[in-house]
Design a protein around this nucleic acid. Sequence first.
DNA 1: CGTGGTCAAGCGGTA
DNA 2: TACCGCTTGACCACG
Length: 311
Amino acid sequence: MNIRLGYVSISKTLDITASKTITYTEYQKHKDINKLNNIIIENLTNLEKIIDYNIKNNIHFYRLTSKLIPLASLKELDFDYIDNFKEYYQRIGNKIKKYNLRIDTHPGEFCVLNSTKKEIVESSIEILKYHYNILDALGIKNKIIILHIGSSVFGKDKSINRFINNFNKLPKYLQDCIALENDDKIYNIKDTLYLCEKLNIPMVLDYHHHICNNDNLNIDDYLERIFNTWKITPKLHFSSPKNNTKKDFRTHHDYINPLDFISFLEKIKHLNTNLDIMLECKAKDEALFKLVRQLKYYDYNFIDETTINLK
DNA sequence: CGTGGTCAAGCGGTA
DNA sequence: TACCGCTTGACCACG
């Protein structure tokens, strides 16, 4: 069983970002489309550098920043962020394909598909379309957009029903991309798995969120079913708490606690399935490589720079 | 240069 | 009631 490690959005080693932005207010002041285009080019250029870096270091999967294209989901702005930059997407997409990289996205907190407010649901769908457009422009076959179930206004049951209703109203091409992740405050692994099985969509297990929000559910009872929601290699998120105070527990630490990670590996070992584990740390790729060094110290085998072989 | 206020947007939790 | 954190900050204005 092989376990690949990935990271999110920013490379600390390269110290570049593909998240440069312009605010709506600032853009409205001058309506300078050239400035906007230059930011997009800068982000796409940096994304390509990050992809190159990932290839060079055998990092097989990666989460795109949700801020690649500023203001993209604003309907009233209506600028072309795909066709005008086709050669960038194609060049990056070719590398992704050639090296078989796994790339997914995770919209930010403003994407609430089960909001009680109609306009929030509408803007959430625009955000989903934006994420789809990027994955599509990159030519990614298994498009995965990871969402949380969202709000709990009027209670969990009603909120889950709102999610189902709104999900069913989505165009099929969007439905086919959505995966759900358990969150750290409201929807635990049982709630999330229920929805994923009902809607026949994949579930991303976030182990740290499960520690934060579990209602005494035992993860061992759910692992197999969670992994079975996937037609491709199951994906997980792993992170360590910033510190143990109530206030900071949910916040991600700069690095992974290697002993926590090892105890998790031992927990999933018997399932004998390949997994992709995304590390969510402030130190990004540096945290990934630090964990790799620590795991090697504890005698774990690697088949390349970032892939653990578990026996 | 460094820093402080600000940014299109939701929501729940904490002090 | 206000502020914080999350998607995992970056911008401009000001000194």
